[in-house]
Structure formats: C-alpha cells, structure tokens
Design a protein around this nucleic acid. Structure first.
Lengths: 249, 249
DNA sequence: GACATCTTCGTACGTCGTACTAACAACGCT
DNA sequence: AGCGTTGTTAGTACGACGTACGAAGATGTC
C-alpha cells in the first residue's frame, strides 16, 4: 500500500484546513520593517518587499489592499514594541507615565525612519493598547476625562516632538563625520553667524571648533537624559497644575 | 532716424545687464507653496510646479539642483512666516517664548502638509532667525548655555509634536463628515472597545454617540487653547525647575 | 474527473525625479 | 557686422514607483 503517494506522508502533507496562503501579514510586516531598519524607509517598495519574500510583486496585494495598508501593518508592529510588559507597570502615575514615554522614545529612536513615515497610518490595535496603558497610568488620580486626555496628549506630543528632532540632529552632532551634508550645514551656520545678524546665537556657540561648541551647548547630558529632563519638567508642571502627588524618590 | 528698430524704445528694450533669468527661487518656492496649500504636498511635483510657471520641467533644475532643494526653499519660505515682527517682541521671557510657540503652531496648523514633508529639510536662514528669536526671548534670564538650549528645544518639541497630532486628528473630530476613512476608524475603535480589552478607554469614552463622546473627552477648550494649556504647563515646570520669574498677569 | 474557488503573479499604464543634450539668446570681442 | 562664449530654457529618455487587470496554477468538494 506504500503506493503512488509516498509524498502523502503526514510530514509532507499540508495540514488539514489547508489551502492556506503562502504568507501572512505578520511576515510581510516584519520583512518590511527589516528593510526599513537596514536601508531606510525609502527602500521599502512593494517590489522590494515581495522580492525579499521570493514572491511576485502583486502577490502582496492579496494580503494588503494598498501600500498604505502595508505601512499601517508596519506601524502596528512597531507599536507592539512600545507596550509595557505585564508586571513591569509602575503603580505611581508619574513613574508609569515616565516608563511609557521613555520606552516609546527608545523605540522611536531605534527606528528613526518611523517618525517620518508612519505619521498618517491609521490607528491600529497596538495604538489603542498604548493609549489604554497611558490611561491605566492615570487610573489612580482623580483627574476628569478632559484633563486625563490632555495630559496624555501632552506627554505623547513631547515624546514624538523630541524623538523627531533628536533623530535629525543625531549625526550632525557626532564628530568623526566629514561627509559633505553635515560639513556643509556647519559651514553654512558659521558663515551666517559671521554676518553678525545672529548675536545671541554667536554668543551661545562662540567662535571655536564647531564640534567643541556643539558639545558645550548640548551640555554633559546624553540625548536620552536630555529627553528625560524635559519630560520631568513637563510632568512637574502637570503635578503643579493639577495638584498631583510626586513619587517619593 | 526712427528707423527699423522702433522696438528699440527704452521701454521695450530690456535693461542693460540683462541676460536675467526668467524666474527666481522666491517665485518657484511660492508657486510650490501655493500648490501644496491647495492640493497637498503630494501634488508638488517638478512637472507640476514648472507647468504652473509655464516653463519646461527641466528649467527648474537651473534654479535648483534636486527636488530636495525645492523643498528646502519651501521650508525656508514657511519659516519666514513664523518670525515675530520687529516691535511685537514681548520683553518677559515667558511671554516671548509663548508668542513664538503660538505663532509657530498657528503657521504649522495652517499648512498641515508641512510637518509631514519638510522634516528633513536642512537648516536655512529663516530657521536660524527663528532660533535667534528664541534665544533673544531668554536673554533676560541667567540660564547657562546648555539650559537655554534645552528649554528652547523643549518648547519647539512641544510645538511640533502637538501640531503634528492636531493635524491628524482635526478632521476625525469634526462631525458632518461621513466619508469612509473617518467612519471606518471610529467603527474600528468601537468594535475594539466592545471586546472588553480596553476597560479604561471604555470608561473614558462611554458607549454613546462617538462624536458626543469625542466632544466630552476633548473638553470645552479648542484645539488651540488645549495647545496653549499644555505649553503653559511646560513653562510652569520650567519656571519651577530653574527658579525663573513668571509674568504678573 | 469536473468544477469552483483560493492564491499567485506577469504585463502594462501612468506617475515620478532627473541625466543628458540640444537649442536658443544675449553679451564681449574683433 | 559677425563670431565665439556662456547663460538660460527645454525636449527626450531611463529607471524607479504604485497598482489595475486578468490569466494561470493550486487545492478543495462533488
């Protein structure tokens, strides 16, 4: 009876309930994510993603209606990373909000292309989970609905705004880079300052080595610590405004 | 002697030192800006801008090396609008910073495509003027260089972050809209909430009419006033942190 | 086997940015 | 007046892109 269909072994035979597609959305999203991380968002094209999966380009359109939907998938995958794991959730509102914000900032900073690109992505499940966590952080306070919403938005705005600018500036501040764009920008700034039209800027940066000036102006804190300092200032203002308790620390 | 060249009248003859280009960068930038305002940033293509000027497409490349340079021109033109006019500059640091931030927010909100699109534009002259004005706002304080820089960045981050999200949300909150995308998003959120996975979100929004829920959660303040409230909170935190005076008001 | 339906993907169209190159126009020379 | 130089405009063409259309292959049910 070991007849014609030896390939009908349990191992080679597809599971029942087959007729299963060769790919799935998670796979596609993570492939796209990998490309974006390695070569930037601009490298993520339908042809490219399909190629990476050894599929025909149009195959993707079976899983996704448009490229925007692919981007939505990418966004949702990224947002999964920003969720605080069960059990690591601080109990004090200040600590919880800080943990969420810092984690989000870390992710956004690790994927610098994301902020430029995922902005018009519609709300997905993980976006809602992120919002839910922020609300959970404020559950212990007696803020009313509009105030909770306002505070959460303030924190999110700060995170996104800062991550955005930090991503832009990152390489510019690094020494040991001498490609044209950065040097050109520094050179431009120096020439502008030399015109005397920018007395305050001149006083701030001085006339010395640009990289040294930059280091002096940014101060001793890392970009991440400067973000945290800004966040702490914001939350201090919020505590003041709404008479919220600060953690003992 | 009124001979062959009647067209050689002083009025018709071009001025000496001619050989002047037919266009200039300001013209090109404002044309591109107009297109973006009317039809969104995606409508700004080299062909389109050139067409609007009745020029050949490639003519633009005489004024600009790449499309990115065109975008830089657009960015610089926008940044001109955010500069506070001479004489309107408040003397107290708090008022000055607020004026700069609000004005910037207004401009960004009036050109919602800008935040999505101008982000990688390199620093231009008007960007430097904006920074110079921010420094001028802090001239009366005795903050040191790193603290000034940090505070200015915090405010800018807040402005950009908020304007970004406000632009996304704007239409979604408006009633009298029933196109598919917005309705689809609201519908999605309702279905998600109904799963019970989002108790805090559910408690916040309730089960009533989505637009009514939205109105209740955003509260009585306009988007602009909510931005100002967040900004005031941030600045209050800053005043606290650095022992700065608040205006009498 | 025949048929229906699920899944894959080749071809083709219209867009985009822009490299290359030719054409035209205005000036300084003689 | 003619000529070469150089500033300015623009046509053509190439290789990318997203995706509409529809044919082809694969897998299930009778």
């Amino acid at each position: 009876m070991a007849s014609a269909d030896d390939d009908a072994l349990i191992w080679t035979r597809p599971e029942p309930g087959t007729r299963r597609p060769k790919f799935n959305r998670d796979q596609i999203a993570s492939t796209a994510l990998a490309i974006a991380d390695a070569e930037g968002f601009a490298a993520v094209s339908m042809r490219r993603v399909a190629g990476e999966l050894n599929a025909g380009t149009m195959t993707l359109y079976y899983y996704v209606r448009t490229k925007d939907e692919l981007v939505a998938l990418m966004d949702n995958a990224l947002m999964a990373e920003v969720l605080i794991p069960e059990g690591e959730f601080p109990s004090h509102w200040y600590d919880a909000l800080t943990a969420i914000a810092v984690r989000t900032w870390d992710i956004l900073t690790r994927h610098p292309w994301a902020l430029h690109s995922l902005r018009n992505a519609p709300v997905g499940p993980n976006n809602m989970r992120h919002f839910e966590q922020s609300l959970a952080a404020l559950a212990g306070t007696d803020l009313d609905a509009p105030d909770k919403f306002l505070l959460i938005n303030m924190v999110d705005d700060h995170v996104h705004g800062n991550a955005l600018r930090a991503a832009e500036v990152r390489e510019a501040g690094e020494p040991a880079r001498d490609e044209s764009p950065v040097d050109a920008a520094l050179q431009f700034a120096r020439v502008q300052i030399a015109t005397g039209e920018f007395p305050h800027t001149q006083a701030l940066f001085g006339d010395g080595d640009p990289h040294e000036s930059w280091a002096r102006v940014t101060g001793p804190l890392s970009e991440r610590d400067r973000f945290r300092a800004g966040l702490a200032t914001l939350l201090r203002g919020a505590a003041d405004r709404w008479k919220l308790t600060l953690p003992d620390a």
